[in-house]
Design a protein around this nucleic acid. Structure first.
Lengths: 344, 344
DNA sequence: CTGTTAGCGCTTTCAA
DNA sequence: TTGAAAGCGCTAACAG
């Protein structure tokens, strides 16, 4: 038999309104009464029915989610996670709009500003392309009472209410560790980066360095793919690294071009192909995993991450729960040839 | 603006009862009327509000979950998953009772029978200790209309409505693949089993064999820990394997004693300690991961699996959805020194 | 500080 | 085959 507020009220000879007030710590209840209600509730093991609560509250929240289009294989999974969460929470009054744009810092700041002032949304969840440049916009939004959350990429020094995503410092460390485990004794290795020197990238590098320092090893000069700066084709730029790669037996592809790099390296005439470790999973990356060109890739569960981001906003704004964990770090999963099928 | 059944009713000049009938395909609505309602609903993009639906339906489901106590570190995580799911679904009328017992086949069958006839539950979700012995009980339960689902361990030839858990055939394959990747060129390896020759264990062995056959390698005679049969202490039994292990450079611990085996091997006087790969994660196992005694362990996310099992029953019995996937295979995750912290 | 009352959106009799 | 109306458990506005 389900315990309802009415039953508590009856047993105590009071009205349900009072019970309700106690359970939502609204003011206007004498301490004595409040105490009595709480006691009785504990005795009967009363749990307020959320369906009824939402129904009568009729509160609605509309959140904007802003994130890039590229790489599509990754963000479409995030999007899936967001929509599955939405499917549940829609019935509790949560609505979502997804805005996807591949933009530079300036443009993204502009978009964020527009969302804040637009009056169409009650909250913003977004993946900042970098950390520092967003300090101000986020600060401004928050100060005027507009809730902003980050996900996938963070701006940790900003006042964003919370971050859901990976710890990229740890991702760098893990990459070092994996390379180490797969490479065996020899230690000629390095990382490959692109020219986008974002916060996420810096964290990965730092983590990789930390791991190396901790384990008393040094790595070769990092390799850069500079196709944008040189206005060159990506594959061409990778091919240019052949000399540098010759002699290496381990590479951590820290930027988002794992499949391209793997393909490029496969095409090179190397005496020994290096072990390759990188990030994320896609059909293309899986192709190189199965061929043994890529040995392992570090993934976050994007569907889960999307869900989690929605959940965070919901709990905070709809349930009015405190944010107890400002940084919700998602787990880093290791995918190799053997378990890749679960990830695609 | 939220679209409600009332709005549809008004626009069509009918009552909400009719709209409701159409949306729950209850009989008693003329085809014409039904069509009109559906059209209008599509036009307005109407989605019935689940909170309201549950509130007025007042349907309650009580499911029994039956699974072992040992190993505690694993099942307590499953239990966590079950309770978190319950926390959500409780508000939709789903109640759960967890029954934990370490029993032999005969006893477990008895318990299952008791649950079926007890009249206290509307469904049973359980982890059969083996596959074949349960064919009959499950069959009987299902035939008399009592819904039975399996999780973590399956009885695939039974008529259970669905299974949520890992594919242990694939787990065996993955173990082979991992050993291969971590061991390097040499190929003296085998698996360690205990005397419990359950379906799960057979599947792991088969998968391991398949992998070996596919890759054209052979492995040494499997090693058995037979402490029960010999009525001996576990650690003693492991210590007895020293001669057999000497000379091996890779071991797949297929049974649930990874930490014990790792500890035992660490204590042996081996010229070369073999690479060890096994299953699951716990504080103890993590200890050996960090020390490098265990190289990798294959995990399923037990919290997720618990949630998923609850979700399955809920969707089927409460939402009356069809079971579209009888086998819901959860992903196999690879945990090593570097990412273990996310798993404990 | 506390009670009364009218819903929230949907389901379910009962009556037509 | 359809409609009217009561009610699920909780909330909020208003009254006292």
């Amino acid at each position: 038999m389900k315990i309802t507020a009415k039953m508590i009220a009856e047993q105590l000879g009071i009205s349900t309104a009072t019970v309700d007030r106690v359970f939502n710590n609204r003011n206007g209840v004498s301490p004595k009464m409040a105490h009595k209600v709480k006691e009785k509730a504990k005795e009967l093991n009363y749990k307020p029915n959320k369906s009824a609560s939402f129904l009568s509250r009729k509160k609605e929240i509309r959140a904007a989610f802003l994130f890039p289009i590229f790489p599509e294989y990754f963000w479409k999974e995030i999007e899936r996670g967001i929509w599955t969460a939405h499917e549940d929470m829609y019935h509790y009054g949560m609505d979502i709009e997804i805005i996807r744009k591949d933009h530079e810092v300036e443009e993204q700041i502009k978009t964020v500003e527009d969302i804040i002032v637009s009056d169409k949304y009650d909250a913003l969840v977004f993946a900042p392309v970098d950390a520092e440049p967003f300090l101000n916009v986020i600060q401004k939004g928050i100060n005027q009472g507009f809730p902003i959350y980050t996900f996938n990429n963070d701006s940790p020094l900003s006042k964003r209410l919370s971050y859901v995503g990976a710890d990229y410092l740890d991702a760098g460390r893990l990459a070092g560790e994996l390379l180490h485990q797969f490479m065996g004794p020899s230690k000629n290795f390095t990382l490959i980066l692109d020219e986008l020197n974002t916060f996420q990238m810096k964290q990965k590098i730092k983590g990789f360095q930390e791991w190396a320092a901790y384990n008393g090893v040094t790595f070769e000069t990092p390799l850069y793919i500079e196709h944008r700066r040189l206005n060159r084709n990506l594959n061409e730029s990778i091919a240019l690294l052949e000399q540098d790669i010759e002699g290496l037996d381990g590479i951590y592809v820290a930027c988002g071009a794992l499949a391209d790099v793997a393909g490029g390296i496969e095409r090179m005439n190397l005496k020994n192909r290096p072990i390759i470790v990188g990030h994320d999973i896609s059909k293309d990356i899986n192709h190189y995993l199965q061929k043994g060109v890529v040995t392992a890739t570090i993934c976050q569960d994007p569907v889960f991450q999307g869900r989690q981001a929605v959940q965070t906003v919901f709990n905070h704004l709809m349930l009015e729960e405190e944010i107890d964990q400002v940084e919700q770090i998602v787990k880093l999963e290791i995918v190799t040839k053997g378990n890749a099928k679960y990830y695609i």
